[in-house]
């Protein structure tokens, strides 16, 4: 890429970075301009990328070059989603949705159950004593009690009173710790992104830092 193109790119990046950050102080017309540019470009990018990766691959290569006529079935089912915009035949779009939901629900029933239920339950059966390291034992107790109590919290068919209420409370605190950890990690990730943008502004654009 030539030097001038890189310079133009850097100025564009700098402009949009400053304008998008400006919304933190106050909403302004330049921010709204950048926001609409972002949404428009990203949506257009998504459509074109899907065209490159799936539609052209299957229509041009699969159907026309390789002669895979069976591909006509998913293509027709896929196109039926657009009948939503023609009121008299809008019910046809249900075929697209039901096709996706049929495979989707089959996928959940066949593939999600083992990794997200069976394996998770199995992995919770941890040794509670005798590991040789007291800290590992304590951690395992915390792990097992935390998991069981979190599950009890989701039992909505029983009243949360007495022992169940207390167990459910422990579950709520366990989940609060989990949310706190997720929150802390999210903040760190976002700060890291923000530092990256600042490094770009002060380094690549203004050349104030190396």
């Amino acid at each position: 890429m030539s030097e001038s193109v890189i310079t133009v790119g850097n100025w564009l990046q700098a402009f949009f970075t400053i304008v998008l950050v400006s919304a933190v102080f106050k909403d302004n017309p330049l921010y709204r301009f950048a926001e609409h540019t972002y949404v428009g470009l990203y949506a257009g990018y998504g459509v074109a990328l899907t065209y490159f990766n799936y539609i052209r691959q299957n229509v041009t290569k699969g159907l026309m070059t390789d002669g895979e006529w069976s591909l006509l079935i998913p293509i027709i089912i896929g196109v039926l989603i657009y009948t939503r915009y023609i009121k008299s035949i809008s019910w046809l779009s249900r075929y697209t949705i039901c096709f996706q939901l049929g495979i989707g629900s089959g996928y959940v029933l066949a593939k999600d159950f083992k990794p997200f239920f069976v394996d998770q339950v199995r992995a919770t059966f941890l040794p509670l004593w005798g590991s040789g390291d007291w800290w590992v034992d304590v951690s395992n107790w915390v792990y097992v009690i935390g998991t069981v109590c979190s599950l009890v919290y989701f039992l909505f068919t029983i009243q949360k009173k007495g022992v169940q209420g207390k167990v459910s409370l422990v579950g709520r605190y366990t989940m609060m710790v989990a949310f706190g950890a997720a929150f802390g990690n999210t903040v760190m990730a976002r700060v890291s992104l923000f530092l990256g943008r600042m490094q770009f502004l002060l380094g690549d654009w203004l050349h104030l830092i190396k």
């Binding site: 339950v121 915390v142 792990y143 979190s150 989701f154 579950g171 989940m175 989990a178 950890a181 997720a182």
Partner: peptide, 15 residues
């Protein structure tokens, strides 16, 4: 430990 325990409870419930 506690984060994994809480997330596991949520995951099993969500599954």
């Amino acid at each position: 430990v506690p984060n994994s325990a809480g997330m596991r409870g949520i995951q099993i419930g969500a599954c």
